[in-house]
Nucleic acid binder design. Structure first.
Lengths: 237, 237
DNA sequence: CACTGCCTCGCTATTTATGGGGGGGCTAAA
DNA sequence: TTTAGCCCCCCCATAAATAGCGAGGCAGTG
């Protein structure tokens, strides 16, 4: 079957619920003739959302075994920008190779291709294809479809962000310039005294900024505030 | 002139320096028959890099006037995931409309289309087209080219990250599982006592993990350690 | 004009983190 | 087998962060 990008994108754009996305992953699975198609993302609050063809057994096992913490796909994609072919990752660690075998036992194919997608506020998503194939077959499959898959991944992400915004209405914490400077200094490892010196203000004043930034970010302490500011992407180290 | 996506992407992939990117923006400008094409990004260290056809006068003025802090394009794209047509943004504020008039005076057209692109570690880039046109003309131009432009924006970004990585080559420090848990707890805002309770160990032991993680990460204090772990992508919030 | 938000500085008290130092046991690779 | 790395616990002193309270000036918005 041939991939008709236009019709697929338009059905994605018409989707009004996560269930539609789920259905589209199944359709895509048939069209591309692969074992699995999965879209999965983590929002800025650490909540997960997934649409895909993995069995619930595998998903449960994945979470239960805490594979998230050792999955080279997650690691690799979190640090890179470009899509990745699973075989190119480092599976040498004991935990990773055990996970890989476990995945095969739960119906996954030995080949995978994952496109990382990033949204605002540190939002991070993965769009994954999985199939059983040899390395060359898979490489050429990927080469053929890479561009279309990227478009599809982005349409998935657009929808996911839409759904998220509907349900919640995410108030974006906007920090003032001085608060941003303060957070940045702290993220760079400066103590309050050093940060105050660098900003040319008293330590007392700096403290006020940190406090107000903390409140705006809904953070429990300074470390938390810096962590949130970083992962929401409102400061850079 | 018609846009040949394949050849453009391949020349992008062959680029070996920022100057090549610069040249490609000029080519693209001719092909698409628009006034300006600009790719601009901020890396994880806050350093800026740009390739584009804006005049140096305008760039200098932009920085000098601190337009970065009031530009609706920057604001809008930082918070959204999808490309934006400038006219759809909110230009009502005093500062923004002054900036817009100033831009027109410096050779920019009245229409713009900007694609935000995000990379790992909060990296943030913009790919912008600018031209003189009426609203409907511009809308149809954008509709025609949106998909290709997204591919191009991503190729630009891939290159930019490549250039960045060349200079560095820093091996990321590997933390032990308990150290990772400790860092993650702290990043979630837990105090040492809470984190220790959650991990089921004494606070003293937890401290040892934090210390050793700090040393491995070359961090000056706990906050710095968590910030590094986050921005290196070795923990997730 | 009044309002809100930002920037600046001060005080006190309590809690918490930091920087060292020790110790022992356990597993996995060299 | 030895070594290295991880995991777990304890003590001490000092330094730093936190949580409240207070104040005034200045700029931009409606």
């Amino acid at each position: 079957m041939k991939l008709n990008l236009e019709s697929l994108v338009s059905s994605l754009q018409k989707a009004t619920s996560p269930e539609h996305l789920q259905a589209i992953t199944r359709t895509l699975c048939d069209i591309l003739n692969v074992r699995h198609v999965v879209y999965h993302w983590v929002n800025s609050k650490g909540e997960r959302f997934g649409a895909g063809t993995y069995s619930t057994e595998w998903i449960d096992r994945y979470l239960e075994k805490d594979y998230l913490r050792m999955d080279p796909v997650i690691f690799g994609c979190f640090q890179r920008f470009t899509p990745v072919i699973w075989k190119d990752l480092d599976w040498s660690s004991r935990a990773a190779s055990a996970m890989f075998r476990d995945a095969l036992d739960h119906g996954l194919g030995n080949q995978g291709y994952t496109i990382p997608v990033r949204g605002p506020n540190g939002q991070f998503a993965l769009f994954t294809l999985n199939d059983q194939a040899d390395d060359d077959e898979w490489k050429s499959f990927v080469a053929t479809n890479a561009r279309d898959l990227m478009i599809i991944a982005h349409e998935f992400n657009k929808k996911a962000l839409e759904f998220e915004r509907e349900g919640e209405g995410v108030p974006k914490p906007a920090l003032s310039p001085r608060e941003l400077s303060a957070m940045t200094c702290l993220a760079k490892g400066k103590s309050r005294a050093q940060a105050a010196a660098e900003m040319g203000i008293s330590e007392h004043t700096l403290r006020v900024y940190i406090e107000s930034a903390r409140h705006k970010l809904g953070a429990l302490n300074t470390t938390h505030a810096v962590a949130r500011a970083l992962s929401e992407g409102i400061i850079l180290v």
